[in-house]
Amino acid sequence: MAMTELPLRGDFIPLDALLKAAGLAHSGGAAKAMVADGFVKVDGQVERRKTCKIRAGQTVEVAGEHVRVVAPSA
């Protein structure tokens, strides 16, 4: 299982924006469709809220790819 880290720029990132920023979706529309279709897990649970707030410490999984969100560097 490959784990990628994505540093936050603020307190949170919306789930659809994270998928696009991490390269897991080629567009915002594709990211929203992936979430709506139940292909995305947050901390091991299927998440269907497209703009769910993802915070530091959470892990997002899509098709075997894992992204761990980390706090911004000070």
Rank of each mutant, 00 (worst) to 15 (best):
His66Asn: 13
Met34Ser: 15
Ile54Trp: 05
Leu6Ser: 12
Val40Cys: 03
Asp37Gly: 13
Leu6Ile: 07
Ala74Ile: 01
Gln45Phe: 07
Arg48Ala: 11
Lys20Leu: 13
Val40Asp: 05
His26Gly: 12
Ala2Thr: 14
Ala17Leu: 10
Val70His: 02
Ala30Met: 08
Glu47Met: 13
Ala56Ile: 02
Met3Arg: 14
Arg49Phe: 08
Lys41Phe: 01
Ala63Glu: 13
Ala25Lys: 04
Leu18Gly: 05
Arg9Ala: 13
Gly29Pro: 10
Ala31Val: 02
Asp11Trp: 00
His66Phe: 13
Ala2Asn: 14
Ala25Ser: 11
Thr4Leu: 15
Arg55Trp: 00
Ser73Val: 10
Pro72Cys: 02
Leu8Gln: 03
Pro14Gly: 08
Asp16Met: 01
Ala25Asp: 05
Asp37His: 15
Val60Trp: 04
Lys50Thr: 08
Ala36Val: 04
Ile13Pro: 07
Lys53Met: 08
Leu15Val: 02
Glu61Ser: 15
Thr4Pro: 01
Gly57His: 07
Ala56Pro: 12
Val40Ala: 09
Gln45Cys: 11
His66Gln: 14
Arg68Phe: 01
Asp16Tyr: 02
Pro72Phe: 04
Pro7His: 12
Glu65Met: 05
Cys52Gly: 04
Ala33Asp: 10
Lys50Asp: 02
Phe39Lys: 15
Phe39Thr: 08
Ala31Pro: 11
Arg48Gln: 13
Ala36Pro: 00
Val62Ile: 06
Met3Leu: 15
Met34Cys: 11
Met3Thr: 12
Gly64Thr: 00
Val40Met: 03
Leu6Pro: 10
Gly38Leu: 10
Pro14Asp: 07
Ile13Tyr: 01
